[in-house]
Design a protein around this nucleic acid. Structure first.
Lengths: 203, 203
DNA sequence: GTCTATAGAAGGATAGAC
DNA sequence: GTCTATCCTTCTATAGAC
């Protein structure tokens, strides 16, 4: 199926996704989106009425996709260590495919925190980490991880995976001075982060 | 010294800092900055010519302040463990005072990676972590941290400190559902993150 | 140095023909 | 459904009086 065969609405949506992710809500221009989609501004408004509605459609799709990437990993029937390795491998691989998503989502949410609330209703993080805790209670208990520190642990894990992408501009600049390629660094990170966390919580 | 006694240029600069950090370069409005400073738009242009120049002045000041917060900690004459504890205590305390800086800097750099290069020239990260490695070679060597993995380690440490602030909107939303206050969470984090890293690299 | 007024450009959104 | 033309608002930036 060629670009031209796609439904116009779909083409607009994809163009809008590209431009919004690249420039952010404030920096994006309707003309730019129209050009990317190969149509004119009027047609954007015909399909999505306002810039705000178009942005919301794009944002909900992206944030939903991002959030859904977290949960399933923890449902696998694996040991705690294997889950951690699996998470970093899978999640970083996803971010390698979508390196701009973290910065985009983080920024848009900080500019408008209300956006996240609707989305969070659908994802149940409490039960996610409550389940994780219950399943590995004995292992975790041995190493002083309690249910109360689960949020700290989960957010630490996510930090290690997401932050390098959100801070890519800075990290790339620093690594460049030492002759390390960002992509290499990320590839290494899948293992480094997993072993780092495993050592931190199981020894 | 009252607000009115301050030099106009300084008042403009402070107002611009507030507005830019809050809204970002694209979202900030010259009129908004003028109002915050208690003057009119024309005077902004008189002092800083263009929005771009005003933004650059603000950005360099902020990013410089942020970067400088990293290095000195590692110069202290302390054991490796003590340095790590000291870093998280000091750095998170700084971010508690300036919670919006991470999101602002991360976003503006990703929109314009060239901005960082000028700044990075002044800070020598390689020598920073090379020194750190040399000083604690024996301790680190015992636990499989080599000079080659120092970047992974340093960036992991920074992630654990900075990410919760950059992702505040999301984290606050999640913690809210479990009845945890963000400020409490951050206060706890000074210790949690330090012990987490220490366990990861010394056992 | 500081102000008011306004130029000039760009952006979002709509009207109306096809 | 798609286009051209255009309206209206907002924004950066400048001119010019004081």
């Amino acid at each position: 199926m060629s670009e031209n065969d796609k439904l116009t609405e779909e083409r607009i949506f994809e163009a809008a996704t590209d431009v919004f992710v690249d420039k952010g809500m404030d920096g994006a221009r309707m003309q730019d989106i129209a050009s990317h989609a190969g149509i004119n501004k009027a047609l954007l408004h015909y399909y999505f009425r306002t810039k705000d509605q178009l942005f919301n459609a794009v944002f909900e799709m992206i944030a939903g996709r991002m959030l859904k990437k977290f949960a399933p990993v923890f449902d696998e029937n694996l040991s705690l260590e294997a889950k951690i390795r699996f998470f970093f491998k899978e999640h970083i691989a996803f971010l390698q495919e979508n390196p701009k998503l973290p910065g985009f989502i983080l920024n848009e949410i900080s500019r408008n925190p209300a956006r996240i609330k609707k989305l969070l209703k659908k994802v149940h993080f409490e039960s996610l980490w409550k389940n994780l805790y219950e399943q590995h209670k004995t292992e975790l208990g041995k190493y002083n991880i309690t249910e109360a520190t689960m949020p700290q642990l989960i957010i630490s894990i996510v930090s290690l995976s997401v932050f390098p992408f959100a801070a890519r501009g800075i990290i790339e600049g620093i690594l460049e001075k030492v002759g390390i390629d960002f992509d290499e660094f990320i590839e290494e990170r899948k293992n480094f982060a997993a072993e780092f966390v495993i050592k931190a919580i199981t020894r």
